[in-house]
Nucleic acid binder design. Structure first.
Length: 106
DNA sequence: CGCGTGACGTATC
DNA sequence: AGATACGCCACGC
């Protein structure tokens, strides 16, 4: 195994259902990542197969270079964004109990 | 081993 | 509302 963390992050992101979004910090916490930066780094490296468009920043705004594409993809899934910001309070993915327990304890 | 860089976060001004 | 500072950790040089 290259990196458990690597696999973990990918798994978490794949677990995010359509129409929902998660923040880098959430993914990092659920995956047990030391810092949210790793989430971005992993996505930049192996995020091609993952629904990266469902990952937003802490304030509900997507990455600068992807913002345009990201918001459009999200809109197609039912996640309406106010031109720039997404309603995290409404679309924020809430992890199911077993997922976080299984992940954190392992 | 130090330094810069990065799809980040929080605090502060 | 914007910009700045610091922390955080992996990766390349």
């Amino acid at each position: 195994m290259d990196d458990v963390l690597h696999e973990r992050v990918r798994e978490i992101i794949e677990s995010v259902p359509a129409g929902t979004v998660a923040t880098y910090g959430d993914i990092a916490a659920l995956a047990g990542a030391p810092s949210p930066r790793m989430v971005g780094a992993i996505l930049a490296e192996d995020g091609h197969d993952l629904p990266w468009h469902r990952i937003l920043r802490a304030n509900g705004t997507p990455a600068p270079h992807l913002a345009h594409d990201q918001l459009e993809r999200l809109r197609a899934e039912g996640v309406l964004a106010d031109g720039q910001r997404v309603d995290l309070r409404k679309y924020r993915w809430k992890p199911e109990g077993e997922e976080e327990v299984e992940g954190l304890l392992f």
